[in-house]
């Protein structure tokens, strides 16, 4: 085939347009957009995380708890193939294995110690006392017993009433997973949600 300039340009443009059709896949109607998912521990700010994560799934591969899932198109093309954790179905056990294997440092390497756990910022737990059994005279305390930082991130009072200390909570989601009330009385607000809210209200 002759390589005229016209052929070159036409070929180049045709090639460049072809990938642009892919985001249309996200327009296919289906499941709604999921907002409350956590990023694995050690994730940087959402924007930086997205610019670094290459979707190689090594974090999901190494996770011994199998809690890291890769996102699909249902969460939009801008979340495609990023790792996420749904705390209610399976929460992070803060073993930090995923942070050790990330090739691009989208997840900052962290040690699997108490100090490493305290440095994690996946989100903040929020309690709804209206739903909590302990606030209605039925002592439960399941969330406190699952907390990896008991006494720091969460303290417990009379009738096992939990209190969350927001500044110490790392947002691993174990309390949300273990809550025996349906729907859960304790939820994690993901770090990227807090981040975008702060941006909207001009706090950050």
């Amino acid at each position: 085939m002759k390589l005229s300039r016209r052929n070159m340009i036409v070929g180049f443009i045709a090639g460049a347009v072809l990938p642009a059709l892919i985001p249309l896949l996200a327009k296919i109607p289906g499941a709604g957009r999921l907002k409350r998912f956590l990023r694995p521990p050690g994730a940087k700010s959402e924007k930086e995380f997205k610019s670094l994560c290459i979707g190689c799934a090594q974090c999901a591969n190494v996770c011994p708890n199998n809690c890291i899932e890769m996102q699909g198109f249902e969460d939009g093309a801008d979340n495609f193939l990023l790792p996420m954790i749904i705390a209610r179905s399976k929460a992070c056990i803060l073993c930090m294995a995923c942070t050790q294997v990330c090739p691009t440092d989208a997840l900052t390497p962290m040690p699997a110690t108490k100090e490493g756990m305290r440095a994690v910022a996946m989100g903040k737990a929020v309690l709804s006392p209206d739903l909590c059994y302990s606030y209605h005279g039925r002592t439960c305390g399941a969330c406190y017993r699952s907390c990896p930082l008991p006494g720091e991130a969460m303290t417990i009072g009379l009738f096992e009433k939990p209190t969350i200390h927001e500044d110490k909570c790392v947002g691993c989601g174990l309390c949300e997973q273990s809550c025996i009330h349906m729907p859960q009385a304790i939820r994690i607000i993901p770090a990227h949600e807090i981040e975008s809210k702060e941006l909207r209200h001009g706090k950050a």
Partner: peptide
Amino acid sequence: TTHGIWAL
């Protein structure tokens, strides 16, 4: 979007 788009 994301780098994961290369998977397609």
